[in-house]
């Protein structure tokens, strides 16, 4: 009896951490949870799927041109104009699309958080100058710049990562700076300073960890933007080069053959749209979960 009472007291005293509260709210959001599951399935299929299929993404089979999707032939999603299996190509394309999305977002995350936290923490004239630079970069037509870059320097995946990453950190930097401005007023930052911590230490150890919630939300919203951006370039024929493929490149192929083989357009389109939809839903759900005042 006594021990049970103490138990419940301890529970009450422990309370709920911010993270647990957020997780509870996110779990209550059915759309976000469904998206999370669906996205997990797509990721799994994209990673594992190509190994399970008897076909590969580059072999051509002139006996099986424009086969409609069917169980019997083994081409679940049909084949394209040179007899390549669309199932494997879609999953392989998904690997590239998701990889570009994640790696590039990581690049933009590192630049954006470092830049924004530094600018916000230092404040004053440095902050003014750093944000002025972001403002200027903001008003440049970046999509055109990336295309210029790709045209002048040739088309390779690494350049694509770097170029899109270098473009998409601006939002992150602005948001992180805003949050840093309010975090640096907190007593624990003052305490750290009193204890003799240096500026880089305070930024890395005390500011950045407290930005995480916000950063997680913007990461989930940046990934779909980057995937979209890569698909856009690949659609124009400026992204991933054949025989490698991505969802954008597949949609481009599908567009030119849609009157004879509509599945070539429709299936990759569904994969791209569903993935973007899931990321957006999860991002919205996370934002609501971490910042319930906006609901």
């Amino acid at each position: 009896m006594i021990s049970r009472k103490r138990d419940s007291l301890e529970n009450a005293a422990r309370g709920n951490s911010l993270g647990r509260d957020a997780w509870r709210r996110l779990k209550a959001n059915r759309a976000a949870m469904a998206s999370l599951v669906l996205l997990g399935l797509i990721t799994l299929a994209v990673v594992v799927g190509p190994w399970l299929s008897p076909f590969n993404y580059y072999s051509q089979d002139y006996d099986a041109i424009w086969t409609a999707p069917s169980w019997a032939s083994g081409h679940f999603f049909g084949t394209d104009a040179v007899g390549r299996d669309l199932f494997v190509r879609t999953l392989n394309g998904g690997r590239i699309s998701l990889m570009v999305g994640i790696v590039t977002t990581f690049v933009s995350l590192i630049i954006g958080v470092t830049y924004g936290a530094t600018s916000g923490y230092l404040g004053g004239r440095t902050d003014n100058l750093m944000m002025r630079i972001v403002d200027i970069l903001y008003s440049l037509p970046f999509m055109f710049f990336v295309i210029l870059l790709v045209v002048f320097f040739g088309r390779n995946l690494l350049l694509l990562f770097a170029a899109i990453g270098a473009v998409s950190w601006l939002d992150m930097a602005r948001i992180v700076r805003g949050q840093t401005l309010s975090i640096k007023q907190q007593p624990y930052i003052e305490a750290a300073r009193m204890a003799g911590a240096g500026t880089p230490g305070i930024i890395a150890r005390h500011i950045v960890p407290n930005l995480l919630g916000l950063v997680v939300v913007y990461v989930t919203l940046t990934i779909p933007q980057v995937i979209l951006f890569e698909s856009f370039l690949s659609y124009l024929g400026l992204g991933v080069q054949p025989p490698a493929t991505s969802w954008g490149a597949l949609i481009n192929d599908g567009t030119s053959e849609m009157s004879v083989a509509p599945w070539l357009l429709i299936i990759p389109s569904i994969f791209l749209a569903v993935t973007l939809f899931c990321f957006n839903f999860i991002g919205d759900g996370l934002r609501d979960a971490l910042d319930p005042k906006d609901r």
């Binding site: 698909s231 856009f232 954008g248 509509p262 357009l265 389109s269 791209l272 939809f277």
Partner: peptide, 22 residues
């Protein structure tokens, strides 16, 4: 509006062509 954000123009465009023109 979430659908609008998730369906890019290079998907919507060809799909519309397929339905309304082809």
């Amino acid at each position: 509006s979430l659908a609008g954000i998730s369906v890019p123009n290079f998907v919507l465009g060809p799909l519309m062509v397929l339905v309304f023109a082809v």
